[in-house]
Design a protein around this nucleic acid. Sequence first.
DNA 1: ACCTGAACACCGTTCAAGT
DNA 2: ACCTGAACACCGTTCAAGT
Lengths: 235, 235
Amino acid sequence: MPSALTNMFATIVFMSPRREPVSRRDRPAKPPLSRAALVAVALRIMREEGLEKATMRRLAAELDTGPASLYVYVRNTAELHGAMLDELVAGLEPPEPAAGDWRERLIGLLTSYTWMLFARPGLARSVLTLRPCGPHYLRLIDTVLGLLLAGGMPDRQAAWGVDILLQHATATAAEQGSRAEAAEAAGEEADLALAVAEAGAGAYPHLVRVRDELFAGTGEERMRWSFGTIIDGLS
Amino acid sequence: MPSALTNMFATIVFMSPRREPVSRRDRPAKPPLSRAALVAVALRIMREEGLEKATMRRLAAELDTGPASLYVYVRNTAELHGAMLDELVAGLEPPEPAAGDWRERLIGLLTSYTWMLFARPGLARSVLTLRPCGPHYLRLIDTVLGLLLAGGMPDRQAAWGVDILLQHATATAAEQGSRAEAAEAAGEEADLALAVAEAGAGAYPHLVRVRDELFAGTGEERMRWSFGTIIDGLS
DNA sequence: ACCTGAACACCGTTCAAGT
DNA sequence: ACCTGAACACCGTTCAAGT
């Protein structure tokens, strides 16, 4: 907290020895705590330094308070992550009605949700073990449902389908996104590639047969194909 | 470590004061460190107390050494989890050739893999951000591939399909499993149910329409249905 | 090569006490 | 009701030094 330090010296050097009221006036206006403020700061830290830095302790330091104070506004870290996700989902543009049939629009929406999480793999990982329930996430569920129903799907198929589709989006972001980012994860990817390359046709005949297809295709290609495949299965 | 304590007292009370050689002889034979020993102890702790207790520090204490010693055998915690998964996959029984057609056998295999992870949600969560590459996991990939190819699927479809199917299995276990277990996660489930119950038909028309279907069905039902749906989409 | 103690640089959450 | 400092009970990983 360099700014706090600076202010402390300012107080000592230039001000009267009555410390408390003066340093209070002098300090940059401390923003009032609130759930929204917490989420905003957490999103900024995530953007600038990654989710792993957006810890309760760090947030508290940033907001010039102790970690215990945050627990007035969120139950725990998981709830904070849920609130962060909701804010990000709010920023997703809704599918244009003119953008093709329901299937195309649905794939477009799911793809843009996935890309959004792709850039935040840590959050995706956290969301996977959550039940997001913010208003904007409910909006997303409603929109996906609407598109599935527009495709003539029975209610149950649509209801269960939305779960599979959103879970696939989140899991893909958690899995692929973290690998694209972290250096250690790149090592794991290489380990698998090596293991597959070394696999003998005797022990792993099918693996050897489709070896080249396993790692083929771009992320975008595989993503669209996956969503299309699941949607086709639902229909 | 009560056994170490007991032995220490035994040494002090009954033995000569020359401590080191005696206590060395007296101590239960310290098993030699090895990757397999690490994995075995980690699996036991996970079984008895959950994955979150199977930390590097705890493993080291259990193996009567310092945490630094473990890094000779595994690169990091992620690699340890990968090795644990491989051991668990080894214990999965292969699908009986008589158990119906390829589709039924495939669903059976995927279901049993999912149930196995379901009981270990923490591991499932960890595996999701991993590329498992152990011999038994490769076996699993090969078997799934074999069944898809037996269904007459082109190579590419099978290769990309195995990714979707295994990811879905892992993600389902990570998501549902942790909720079934942790008390806090149950709260999140309730939060979502509440939010859905309170959703207005004006803002969320589709959500309200299929409201009852969203939470319908048992885990087993939805699991089989999901795998069936994805397989149908692949075909 | 393998093993170690100690250190580095942190965590989330709770609690009693304040205002 | 809201806020706080301090504490509780831990983490993963690295490093220099030993054997």
